[in-house]
C-alpha cells in the first residue's frame, strides 16, 4: 500500500534522510520510531506529498507521490506534527472545508463530516470555534480532518504528542479502531506507543533505517539468550541450585523477591530453546509451589537503545545476531 524506495532528501548540504526504503501492507499499522530529528517528519512529508524526495521514489496505493501527486494525495489522510488549524472556523465549518478540498460532494460530504465528528468524539463541540478549543480537542480535530473521506492510507505524525495520559489512551484506542479500515503509518519517539498500537515497527535514526520488523521479532533477533522469569515458594538457594542443574540452563540469577514471600529467579537458556516445561516439572517434582513462570520480553526501549548505539549500517536479512549490550 505504501512503498518507499531509497528515499533521500537533502536540504542544501543537510541530508535529512538517506536511502530510506520500506513497505507497508494494506491494513497494517506501522510505527515509525526514532528520536527527535531522526527524519521521521521528512519521510512523512514526502509520503504526504508536501515535497518530493531528492532521490528515490515513493508510491502510495499504486500512485507515485511525485508524478501522480494529486491522485496519491486524494488517497492519503495526513496529520501533521504541528497541528495548526484555522482558528476562526467552527469545527464543522472546518471539516466541511476539508471535505470540499478533498473533493467530496453534497450528501457524501455531510455523512463524512458526521462520521469523522463521531469517531473522534467531537460531535458536542462541532459548533464551537476551533480557537476556543483545548489542545486535546484540537488534536482530535486534526485527526478528524485526516479521517474525512475515508482515506485508504493515514499518515499520522506524532499523533499523541502533547496530550495528557488519558487523551493518549483515547488517541491510541482511536488509532487501533482504524485497523482494517485504513493502512496507517504513525511516527513517534515514544516506544510504548509502538508496542501498544503497531503491527510492525520501522526504526530510524539520523536519517537511516536501522531495522524493520515486528516488535516481537526485533525482540527475538536482538537477544543472545532467552530468559524466563520464575517465582517459586521454596528455599531460595536450594531452588537456584536445582534449577541450575537442568540441562540447557545457562545461568540462574536471583531477583529481588516479590512481596508475597516467594523467591524470584531469572533463568537464562540458550536462544530458541524453550525450557519452560522442564522448569515447571522440576519445581513440582521438588514439591515447591510454582507461583509464576513467564518468558522475559526485552522492552523496545532496550532494543532501540542497542540499535541506535550501534554504528549505523543497513540491516541485512542474515543479520540475526545483532550484538547488543542486552542483559535485561
Amino acid at each position: 500500500m505504501i512503498r518507499a524506495e531509497h528515499l533521500t532528501k537533502r536540504f542544501g548540504t543537510f541530508t535529512a534522510i538517506s536511502d530510506v526504503s520500506f513497505e507497508v501492507e494494506r491494513g497494517e499499522i506501522v510505527g515509525f520510531l526514532g528520536p527527535n530529528g531522526a527524519g521521521k517528519t521528512t519521510t512523512m512529508r514526502i509520503l504526504g506529498g508536501v515535497f518530493p524526495p531528492t532521490a528515490g521514489r515513493a508510491v502510495v496505493a499504486g500512485y507515485d507521490v511525485v508524478k501522480d501527486s494529486l491522485r496519491a494525495r486524494s488517497i492519503v489522510g495526513y496529520f501533521p506534527e504541528r497541528v495548526s488549524l484555522y482558528l476562526d472556523l467552527t469545527v464543522r465549518e472546518y471539516l466541511r472545508y476539508v471535505a470540499q478540498m478533498k473533493g467530496l460532494d453534497g450528501g457524501q460530504r455531510r455523512a463524512e463530516i458526521d462520521r469523522a465528528l463521531g469517531s473522534c468524539a467531537l460531535t458536542h463541540v462541532a459548533h464551537r470555534l476551533i480557537g476556543t478549543l483545548s489542545k486535546g480537542y484540537r488534536q482530535r480535530v486534526g485527526i478528524a480532518q485526516a479521517l474525512v473521506g475515508q482515506p485508504r492510507v493515514l499518515i499520522l505524525d506524532e499523533p499523541t504528542a502533547g496530550l495528557d495520559p488519558e487523551q493518549v489512551a483515547e488517541m491510541r484506542r482511536l488509532i487501533r479502531n482504524l485497523r482494517g479500515e485504513s493502512t496507517v503509518i504513525l511516527s513517534t519517539h515514544i516506544l510504548s506507543e509502538v508496542e501498544a498500537t503497531c503491527d510492525r515497527v520501522i526504526i530510524i535514526n539520523q536519517g537511516r533505517i536501522l531495522a524493520v520488523d515486528t516488535p516481537r521479532n526485533l525482540n527475538q533477533r536482538l537477544r543472545q539468550t532467552s530468559q524466563i522469569y520464575l517465582e517459586v515458594l521454596g528455599p531460595t538457594d536450594a531452588v537456584a541450585r536445582r534449577l541450575g542443574a537442568i540441562p540447557g540452563v545457562l545461568s540462574v540469577e536471583i531477583s529481588p523477591s516479590p512481596a508475597d514471600g516467594a523467591a524470584a529467579f531469572i533463568v537464562a537458556t540458550a536462544k530458541d530453546r524453550d525450557l519452560r516445561a522442564d522448569l515447571a516439572a522440576c519445581i513440582s517434582e521438588a514439591q515447591w509451589g510454582l507461583q509464576e513462570l513467564r518468558p522475559v520480553a526485552l522492552s523496545l526501549e532496550a532494543i532501540f537503545l542497542s540499535l541506535v548505539n550501534e554504528p549505523a549500517r543497513p540491516p541485512s536479512p542474515e543479520d540475526n545476531e545483532v550484538p547488543g549490550r542486552l542483559s535485561a
Binding site: 512529508r45 494525495r73 495526513y78 501533521p80 504541528r82 495548526s84 478540498m101
Partner: peptide, 14 residues
C-alpha cells in the same frame, strides 16, 4: 506562520 499551509499541501489541490 501558523503552519496551516502544510496541511493545505497534503490535500489533492494544485
Amino acid at each position: 506562520k501558523l503552519g496551516t499551509i502544510e496541511l493545505l499541501w497534503t490535500y489533492p489541490v494544485r
